[in-house]
Computed example of a mutant assay.
Amino acid sequence: MQNVINSVKGTALGFAGFLTPILKESKFKETGVVTPQEFVIAGDHLVHTCPTWEWARGDESKTKSYLPKNKQYLITKKVPCLRRCKQIENCEVQENIVEDEDGDEGWVETHHLDSSLSPLCGEMSEVSFEDNNSKNENQKNDYDTDNDDDDEGEAVDMDSFVENGFLEDNDSIAVYSEQKREKKLSVSSISDNVIKTRTYDLHITYDKFYQTPRLWLYGYSENQIPLNVEEMYEDVSQDYAKKTVTMEIHPHIPGPQMASIHPCKHADIMKKLIQTVTEGGKDLGVHMYLIIFLKFVQSVIPTIDYDYTQNINL
């Protein structure tokens, strides 16, 4: 019954969105909404900050005229999901309740934000954005150092093998064959140790009716078989399953319904974050919208490990 209700609501909102005029004047700081142009600015910053995300064109028949043709929505693929939500239900999680302006509903903000400086848990005096690029670079250097010795065991290139006349030497052929066998066993061993897990493709679209970003997700099993609806709900916090997260038609691509986090609360949450940052004497630019957005929706899908952006202390 809930799915039927959600489907009817989705159809009605789709029609309402069609009639809604395009937001042209910035109201980001006043209401937490963004114009299509501001959505593109925030998207460009996300892609620059986190290259796992990229812009997508979508189906040509579903192109939105108020967005650039090559920047219709954002996508990241094969995001790992190692656990089901029920596996972490009994874990101790630090949470804050972000209350709606009406006071009757709220958003659970989990430990993914710094709890000691959480945006809605008291006074704030500082906003800092820590870039992970230097950390990633150090990890890359460590990786390169660790693998300096791996080249010694690499199999001989076939062209080099022929050029050196090894085809004329049976002993050399035997040595070469052994090297190839060891290489194959090594690759096989690595493959055996790879953890197979569910993965998700995540999309961020611009919702014309709510004038905010909207997150979509589509899951695959450990064997890359598309998950059914109930299986995808296993990776959604039960506080939100079938309520905040519903199955709907993607606005830019044809195909089966996808799970989507409903954007009705996004603007209110962003407005409160902006106000709190401003009270702390700082300024939250619109280019940071999607960075913040990805962090506060993490409470809905806590086991999908998609956030590789900056660490943010508010």
Rank of each mutant, 00 (worst) to 15 (best):
V4A: 12
S7E: 13
A12W: 13
G17W: 08
K24Q: 03
E25W: 01
K29P: 03
E30Q: 09
V33W: 00
V34C: 10
V34H: 04
T35M: 09
P36T: 07
P36K: 09
E38W: 08
F39A: 04
I41T: 09
G43Y: 10
W53N: 03
E54P: 03
R57T: 12
D59K: 06
T63S: 11
K64L: 11
Y66G: 00
P68G: 02
P68W: 00
N70L: 00
Q72Y: 00
K77Q: 11
K77R: 15
K78F: 08
V79N: 01
P80T: 00
C81I: 02
L82H: 15
R83H: 13
C85W: 11
Q87Y: 05
I88R: 11
V93A: 07
E95V: 15
E95L: 08
N96D: 11
I97S: 08
E99K: 13
E101R: 07
D102F: 10
E105H: 09
W107Q: 10
V108Y: 08
E109H: 12
T110Y: 07
T110E: 11
T110D: 15
S115F: 02
G122L: 06
S125M: 02
F129N: 02
N136I: 05
N141P: 04
Y143T: 13
Y143H: 13
T145N: 13
D146L: 05
D151G: 09
A155V: 07
V156A: 06
S160K: 13
E163R: 15
E163N: 12
E163T: 12
G165K: 11
F166E: 14
L167V: 09
N170I: 14
D171N: 03
D171L: 07
I173D: 05
A174G: 06
S177I: 13
R181S: 07
R181A: 14
K184H: 12
S188F: 15
S188Y: 15
S189A: 13
S191T: 08
S191K: 05
N193Q: 09
I195A: 09
K196M: 04
K196T: 08
T197H: 10
T199F: 00
Y200D: 01
H203M: 09
I204D: 05
T205W: 06
F209T: 03
F209D: 05
L215C: 06
Y218H: 11
Y218F: 15
G219D: 04
S221P: 04
E222Q: 10
E222W: 02
N223C: 00
L227Y: 08
N228L: 04
N228C: 07
E230N: 14
M232H: 02
M232C: 02
Y233K: 01
D235S: 05
S237A: 08
Q238R: 09
D239A: 04
K243W: 10
G255P: 12
S260G: 07
H262A: 11
A267L: 09
D268F: 10
I269H: 03
M270E: 05
L273M: 15
V277N: 10
V277Q: 09
G280L: 08
G280H: 00
G281N: 03
D283N: 06
L284A: 10
G285E: 14
V286I: 14
H287F: 10
M288W: 02
M288P: 04
Y289Q: 05
L290Q: 15
L294I: 07
K295F: 02
V297C: 01
V297Y: 12
S299A: 15
P302A: 01
P302I: 01
P302H: 03
P302S: 01
T303C: 15
T303K: 14
I304K: 02
D305G: 02
Y306P: 00
Y308Q: 06
